[in-house]
Amino acid sequence: MTVLVFLDHESGVIRQASRSAVTAARALGEVHALVTGDAAVADAAARIDGVAKVLRAAGAAAAHELAEPLAAVIADLAPAYSHIVAASGASGKNVLPRAAALLDVQPIPDVVSIVDADTFVRPIYAGSALATVKSSDAKKVLTVRASSFDPASAEGGAAPIEQVTVPEGPAVSEFVSIALSKSERPELESARVIVSGGRGMQNEENFKLLNPLADRLGAAIGASRAAVDAGFVPNDYQVGQTGKIVAPDLYVAVGISGAIQHLAGMKDSKVIVAINKDPEAPIFQVADYGLVGDLFEILPQVEAALDTAG
């Protein structure tokens, strides 16, 4: 079996998530990579470990990963492949379902585990359940969760690069502009690291003590409902069942007891750190690393340790 993996890139750099998609695809067969953009992107794709061939869709029509031409390219290439895979990012989710429709295939998004060539595990209900689904389509179209597959090494491959033509069609959509966020503080939903404060922060003034730690970690700042209710921070900081559901790589809970509503909003974080003075606080039941003590003493120590080690 041969698998076509669409690798998306940002400003010429192939996303790490796409290299995770390569790893997932290798479990299914030989990997051919489809890229857009300039030659450097194709060169980078060719060096990814495990990529056997790179297909480069060059030219204006394929720039900016617009869904209409890209889906058409994928549909054109599809007959040679058993599976078509991309990372579950904004680009993959934009393009692949459209390609699947052109192929009369029901796509399978957000795959976290590959059981066999037809059977896949994916979260439903925002991760409240895991469904194992078996596809009866002749060809499978999947997007895969980057967090479930280690990224393939960016180096080690030397795949040949082929040009593919973008089918002619009326240009129904047109790229206008892109604005990548440069804010120092990432947004909660997309942050890789989140530092969250709870009622243990005591007041609005003390809550700001989380800023230096968040600065060092490049983290977004969140809060428990108790902290929001107590008026330390506005509503939109709230992480939890009734606030934002987040799943960063690192979640640092400071002075948060770990009410179930809060846990519901962050339990899918990859690594959870809890800092709390109460050793019985429920947050420690889900924390990978717990530190018991007075947060006002611990916070400066963590900052100092980060500065030293960094």
Partner: peptide, 17 residues
């Protein structure tokens, strides 16, 4: 169980604001 994990199972919600 504790109270909060119990309340969670009542699916209680009120508009925050």
């Amino acid at each position: 169980f504790d109270k909060l994990s119990s309340v969670f199972l009542s699916a209680t919600n009120h508009e925050e604001d």
